[in-house]
Design a binder for these strands. Structure first.
Lengths: 165, 165
DNA sequence: GGCTGATTATTCGGATGCTAACAATCTTTC
DNA sequence: GAAAGATTGTTAGCATCCGAATAATCAGCC
């Protein structure tokens, strides 16, 4: 079974399809590779280290952000994690059902919900995160000595698209 | 409302939580920024250019791959697009219902399904893709003159995690 | 203190996204 | 040519993921 087409093959085919219209292939490569890398990485981390603990990628992110900053308001978790509050509500429901964290209404502002870890949640993160970080090293190792530069470039991309809101 | 915590704040808090355990913060930064950038970019592209045409990110990718390589087998679309065949089946159902592409069983191998664009689908891509590429330029512009390097680093990450299968 | 506007979290509906199981088909081996 | 193994696409079940709508709460203004 052939592997996906090469960049050169794809560029040639796209040029043929669009018949001379100017296409920025470098921009195309940045965006398509961003998604391939993120998707492949998420699947890899879920399969190797998160699924054995019954966690999805986003569940882990929520757990991690809560563990680091607890007690924390839900709107802050959503902001740190980069997903919507609607998504967060669903994931919190899942994690609360697993007994890893707990929600309660703020005593001072009835609109807000505050989240804290349970003892079980803290214990899980104490062992899971160092293991997880080991896999992160495998992934970041792909960038060799340009890891810091890669992280900075990715941060710049996020800033540009979040500024366009 | 405070913006997300800085990298320095996060590192300090993580170090405090883990009490001296060695954590590779650079690796952490690469992986977390990869997801922030991919998620933010997907939301931005869906909101600005895809949703007005009734398309999700993955629906667009499937349409694009099919447009470039048609007629194409479903297993090849899944491979090029980097998602599972189960996901592809659902997205193809959506796109076929919108009249943008068509599926048919292979005449030579009953296991295979071949996908082609409809005239409506080709017309949509003729106008949509150049517009989409314009937004891609905005995004890739975040990397300045390191766009090619960024795409290569991302490709390296994908290769590393897909090799770990 | 009552009204208006803003903010928050949740719910709803619809779409993605995966793994595992399944049915149908093809390939290989004997 | 029959059986076993492999491959394909679909289905089922479960989890995410979003925007819009909703209900509850708070802030500001008069």
């Amino acid at each position: 079974m052939p592997s996906p087409h090469t960049l050169a093959e794809t560029e040639q085919q796209v040029a043929q399809k669009l018949g001379g219209l100017p296409i920025d292939f470098e921009a195309m490569a940045v965006v398509s590779n961003l998604f391939r890398a993120a998707n492949a990485t998420r699947n890899y981390l879920e399969r190797t280290v998160l699924a054995p603990h019954g966690l999805s990628w986003t569940a882990f992110v929520v757990l991690w952000v809560t563990w680091i900053w607890e007690p924390i308001e839900t709107r802050q978790i959503a902001e740190e994690g980069g997903f919507s509050k609607a998504t967060l509500t669903g994931v919190l429901t899942t994690l609360e059902a697993k007994g890893l964290l707990a929600r309660e209404r703020s005593a001072t502002d009835g609109r807000l919900v505050v989240v804290s870890m349970t003892d079980a949640g803290r214990e899980l993160m104490q062992t899971l995160f160092p293991e997880f970080n080991g896999y992160e090293q495998t992934i970041a190792g792909a960038a060799g000595d340009r890891r810091v530069a890669l992280a900075e470039l990715l941060r710049a991309v996020t800033l540009v698209v979040e500024k366009e809101r």
